[in-house]
Design a protein around this nucleic acid. Sequence first.
DNA 1: ATCAATTGACACCGAACGGTATCATCAGCA
DNA 2: TGCTGATGATACCGTTCGGTGTCAATTGAT
Lengths: 92, 92
Amino acid sequence: MLVRSIGEAAAHVRGRRLQLRLSQDQLAQRAGVSRKWVYEFEAGKPHAELGHLLRVLDALDLQLDVSPRSASSESAQGAVNLDEILERHRDG
Amino acid sequence: MLVRSIGEAAAHVRGRRLQLRLSQDQLAQRAGVSRKWVYEFEAGKPHAELGHLLRVLDALDLQLDVSPRSASSESAQGAVNLDEILERHRDG
DNA sequence: ATCAATTGACACCGAACGGTATCATCAGCA
DNA sequence: TGCTGATGATACCGTTCGGTGTCAATTGAT
């Protein structure tokens, strides 16, 4: 699932936690963070430590991926494919 | 690309930035963060603010995704598929 | 040789984080 | 009804972040 904001990441974490029937405390211990962090993160605190999130995702059996936003094969109309442009202009 | 640690995320950011021929300063301005943040992040500082990373990825035309770690169709030998287990045990 | 751009590095400092601890509330169950 | 577990919420407090500003070294181009 795409993650555009911390709030979206928080929703994914909470959803997965409930799916796994884990309490905030259990998740926190698994991930090695405090329950406060889990609670505040899920509650939408506007700041969050990436390292903590990675550990929590790991505890939830989730993984994080980085990918180019505009896929050349399925770009929307009018969308710009930065990778393509780069390819053409490389060694300019 | 999979992101297991902050260091890996940093590598992806730096690689993409160079690919786009952006200076740390340019990227920082695009993303609305300080050059210090970009520099320290790329240098492997063990802590990083998720919100900052999201803005930087956006400025690099990259996106972040969350996905289940063990895909049921291609799980490795001996691997446990949490989703499957959940499915079977749901409604206990 | 000179100049600008880029980068690594550091000091300073206010702001915010994150952990521990604690409390009230609510749901579920014996 | 009484008990237990989960959750939301807050205070305290040491630690660390992140921005601004600055500096030296390096690189690239003129």
